[in-house]
């Protein structure tokens, strides 16, 4: 059996499927190479200071820092807000609900994970932004905070489902052993199941964050759209900008080949690298947990 050739027969089926496989495996590489190549002009014009420049005036100067800052802030905020709800409901669903109730919760989560981003955006601009404005006495409700809250709601189903899978992956015998030693159910969960599922839980959170960081349309509508780091820097109730929103706002006018287009692609490259780091870490942790 070890002598089997790598590709047994090279009929038309081989070449046809091979072509399809090349297309689907090559896409991601092509995507990355294009991002790098197309962002060269802006790095030529601005140097590496593109990454920490704070001024972005189309046609004059391009600095990405406010957008990078905005991306990190809204994603971090979404993380803080989604964590208790996602983990709490994952633990409840996996450890305390009956099989039938669990199926219903999971199905509901899958439906919700599919709700189009534009609907969250509509909800954000028509309702959430108004509530934030009135609740905190702001002039304008389109702020980094609003975007963070909206993202937290958007990634809740994803994080919850993946975290629940991670908890379910802990074998039942582990629970039985802990219970037979006299631990209560909640002690079993908190001291035995959760520590064992920790890599999977962390993976779920990373994947959720990757989604949050790349989400465009909903954030674009509520983040305020001002390329500025607020003063002081931790003032989340100020309008800001993140990378996807910046690309979304300017892509239509920059469509083409000048430096502005290249600057947007370079922003895309930065976003790509950040999201890939989160997702690869997440998939690695989840794979390890299995």
């Amino acid at each position: 059996m070890n002598m089997k050739p790598m590709f047994p027969e090279r009929g038309p089926a081989f070449w046809l499927t091979g072509l399809a496989a090349t297309v689907s495996a090559g896409t991601i590489g092509l995507l990355f190479v294009s991002l790098v190549v197309e962002s060269v002009p802006v790095f030529k014009a601005e140097g590496v200071s593109f990454l920490w420049g704070t001024d972005w005036f189309a046609g004059e100067s391009y600095g990405a820092l406010p957008m990078i800052y905005g991306s990190l802030m809204v994603t971090g905020l979404a993380l803080v807000m989604v964590l208790p709800f996602a983990l709490g409901s994952a633990i409840l669903t996996s450890e305390f609900l009956s099989g039938r109730a669990r199926l219903i919760v999971k199905a509901a989560m899958e439906l919700l994970a599919g709700v189009p981003g534009i609907l969250y955006g509509l909800m954000g601009i028509a309702l959430l932004a108004v509530w934030v404005r009135d609740l905190f006495g702001l002039i304008d409700g389109n702020t980094l905070f609003t975007a963070g809250v909206l993202l937290a709601v958007m990634i809740l189903p994803t994080v919850m489902t993946l975290a629940e899978d991670a908890l379910r992956a802990v074998p039942g015998e582990t629970r039985d052993t802990a219970l037979s030693l006299g631990l209560t159910r909640i002690e079993t969960v908190m001291q035995v199941v959760v520590p064992q599922a920790l890599p999977g839980l962390a993976g779920a959170v990373f994947l959720g964050l990757g989604r949050a960081m790349g989400e465009t349309i909903a954030v674009m509508l509520v983040i305020g759209g001002i390329d500025r780091i607020p003063q002081p820097w931790f003032d989340l109730f100020a309008p800001g900008q993140n990378i996807p929103s910046k690309i979304g706002r300017e892509a239509a006018e920059a469509l083409g080949f000048d430096v502005q287009w290249s600057a947007l692609i370079a922003l895309g490259l930065v976003l790509f690298l950040m999201v890939m780091t989160l997702t690869t870490a997440g998939n690695f942790l989840i794979g390890k947990a299995r």
Partner: peptide, 15 residues
């Protein structure tokens, strides 16, 4: 394939 799944959709638009 998993990496492709993670790419932010706006990047698909650009490239």
């Amino acid at each position: 394939i998993y990496s492709l799944n993670a790419v932010p959709t706006i990047i698909f638009g650009l490239i």
